[in-house]
């Protein structure tokens, strides 16, 4: 059986990649992908803990969070789409009418 720590290390690596992606990427779709990575790292945690604690509620939580992540992506793409219709690009660096 794979020790719990391995799962936690995996999830922290995935989480860090996602966080780095949010900080560094400027393309809207890549940002969404980074957010998904972060959510999924939490899902890995939940399932691993659920399996090691012998408690089902973590896995049920994961099902909920997968569904919510899908809904979130839909809203995100809808917003990106309306930006694309207006400006023909989704580089979020250029979206800067509102500042200070």
């Amino acid at each position: 059986m794979i020790p719990l720590t391995y799962y936690l290390i995996l999830s922290s690596i995935v989480f860090t990649i996602g966080l780095y992606g949010i900080m560094s990427q400027r393309n809207g779709v890549r940002l969404l992908m980074s957010v998904e990575l972060m959510l999924n790292s939490a899902n890995i945690n939940l399932v691993a803990f659920s399996s090691y604690n012998d408690d089902m509620s973590g896995q049920v939580f994961t099902l909920f969070s997968i569904a919510l992540a899908a809904a979130e992506a839909v809203i995100g793409f809808a917003i990106l789409l309306s930006i694309f219709r207006m400006r023909n690009m989704i580089n979020i660096d250029d979206i800067n009418i509102l500042r200070w």
Binding site: S11, V35, A42, N45, S65, I79, I83
Partner: peptide, 29 residues
Amino acid sequence: KSIEAAMKYFIIGSLSSALMLFGISFVYG
């Protein structure tokens, strides 16, 4: 302006839910 507001709100908001879920997963564990 409205679209930009939604964009910023969405990115930061989804980041915050990801952070929250990660925290919750440790509390649960």
